[in-house]
Design a binder for these strands. Structure first.
Lengths: 233, 233
DNA sequence: CCCGGCCTCACCAGAAATGGGGAGTTGGAA
DNA sequence: TTCCAACTCCCCATTTCTGGTGAGGCCGGG
């Protein structure tokens, strides 16, 4: 374990992640291990031992917005066993069947990981075995998996595969206040009143913030400011 | 360590966190350890060994939006040493001085933790010693601290001290699509076009989503949907 | 079988936001 | 000192959003 973490910490190329993940699969003797993230812009990055055909199909079908693992983990903090997720709904059902047909095990344990800039990633272990075996496996390895997930994400963030640095121009104090108040539902007039400035001035802040954030309108600007962690709501 | 984590996992009352944190402070022989979170609604919860006067002053002064530790960690994923944060700016300076006067050590190591619903928490260890000692301490204990931070947050989330469950009414698929597209900067007309529906219909979705989210306007609705993890941007 | 939630469409009038001008002060950095 | 970024204020015209009301088809659960 220490060895793996050390390798992650000094990794300098994404291939290292893939190598580690394959090593881990053998080490734990499970069917699959996958790390994948999806962030703001919608494109994603990941590595793992799933059949490439399944990965391609997943992307092609846009399963990201259907997959109960993603949706469920997105609203959780704890690692979660797939069985505890919501598999009702016909979209989820057909997704599950499709996954099974592509060789994905029916047991799974996923750890959600969150980073700045609205980053969200999953570290998943999947296998085929009965419920009891699976329960004892997850119970035994939970702590290691949490730490692994953390270091995997740390490494992935460091390597930032082709991810543009996005110069995240900082907002001025007034701009931050403006965005924050807009995010909690105030109208322009109310924000102006709260900050004790004219609404005209307020507009200048909104527009400059929008410009700095590269946003197309106010809602977009607020969403970006939130996603990038530039405002604390 | 295992003992501490076990105690966190079976904790049933917030006092357990306080007890554990005090035990940890003695175990590591540091000046202070603090866990605190701040989430959507702005109110916060925490426990730690800081002087209550300092805690009160922190809240009273609204230091949350000035504290470089909070602001800095909010945009990071890795644990961070206080020295690596941005302490320029007069607000930050006077904050630092005020903290020092209230007995806060000048060395610090903070671990950001993120949960669903836009939850953000910090697990901080603070001390007074020279840089080298501090560097070796953090190097040595980093991994334990990450795991501790994780389990602290898990416990805090479980206990949810007085935090309303916020029945998080789920959005319908169309509502999710609508909110998502608005969050990435589309105007109402563009969203309607993208979804191939009339703008009138779109408005119905926005309004029903706004209603479900308890939001005052579109921007607010998008912000809430993001913060609650109901849309993946 | 019926109810309720979801999806779809329509009209209207008023309120709010946007885009693009210009212009002055202050305080900190180069 | 000079310069720039931040902060403040104002006008105009146009586009966009919002609030209220109404209505029909579809599908799944009780």
């Amino acid at each position: 374990m220490d060895d793996v973490i050390a390798r992650l910490e000094c990794a300098e190329h994404p291939d290292a992640l893939q190598a580690v993940i394959e090593w881990l699969r053998d080490y734990y003797s499970v069917d699959d291990i996958v790390y994948h993230w999806v962030s703001s812009n919608g494109d994603q990055y990941g590595c793992g031992t799933y059949d490439p055909k399944w990965v391609a199909r997943y992307l092609e079908k846009g399963y990201l917005r259907i997959d109960p693992v993603v949706i469920g983990c997105y609203q959780r903090f704890h690692p979660v066993d797939w069985k505890r997720l919501d598999w009702s709904g016909k979209a989820a059902r057909s997704f599950m069947q499709d996954a099974a047909e592509h060789g994905v095990g029916h047991q799974g344990y996923s750890i959600p990981i969150r980073g700045p800039n609205g980053q969200f990633a999953l570290f998943t272990v999947s296998h085929s075995c009965d419920d009891e075996q699976w329960a004892s496996f997850t119970e035994l390895n939970r702590r290691d998996l949490i730490l692994l997930a953390h270091y995997f994400n740390q490494t992935a963030l460091k390597l930032e595969p082709g991810r543009k640095p996005e110069p995240t121009q900082p907002l001025s104090p007034r701009e931050v206040e403006t965005m924050t108040l807009l995010a909690v539902g105030y109208s322009r007039a109310q924000v102006a009143e709260t900050l004790a400035i004219s609404e005209h001035t307020l507009r200048v802040y909104i527009e400059s913030a929008r410009f700095k954030l590269g946003a197309l309108n106010t809602t977009h600007a607020v969403a970006r400011a939130m996603a990038r962690g530039q405002i604390i709501v």
